[in-house]
Amino acid sequence: MSSAAVDQGELELVASLRQGDEAAFVALVQKCHPSMVRVARVFVTSQAVAEEVAQESWLAVLEGIAGFEGRSSVRSWIFSIVANRARTRAQREGRSAPFSSFEEQEDEAAVDPDRFNPPGHRWAGHWCAPPERWADEQLLLQETLQLTKKAMETLPPAQRQVIELRDVEGCSAEEVCEALGVSDGNQRVLLHRARSRVRAILEPHLRRTA
């Protein structure tokens, strides 16, 4: 998992890229492009548009590379560029809510309250329908991966963005706050809700342990 700490290999890539080294560009592209498309995809309406946004972002990366100071990781910087372009593109295409509103208004329980004993019960608040252990082998199955992908597609956009960046792409909390322009607290609430929802969607499929 990456962190906001600067990666020496990345710094060398950046230095070579500044010199116009094509191999360095290709290496960076192979490293980052698929993730960039995924990041763009959570803002815009289609895969094709996400591809366009990622492609345009490379131009912005090349144009900005001379000024990149290495205060964040290259990936984090690139993701911010993609997120900004994707957001702008989404707004231009007339998406109703501006994605800048990351304030999740309502309370959202991580687990259906019915799974816990109600107030007044001797063991109020403790599980009455507890979770059953998942077998690790099941996690590695294609079906589980596909289910997880689908589950993330059902998330509200803000939650999807955070879980994509944090758990799919392995960005740090700082990188996500920077890329999405949200506070750490906000990011954590969104992450909490996203993970809770995905777990809940996986649960009925993984309930039977091996």
Partner: peptide, 11 residues
Amino acid sequence: QTIRVAGAVSE
């Protein structure tokens, strides 16, 4: 485990 599976989702 949810975090791990999410991490395995690849393009």
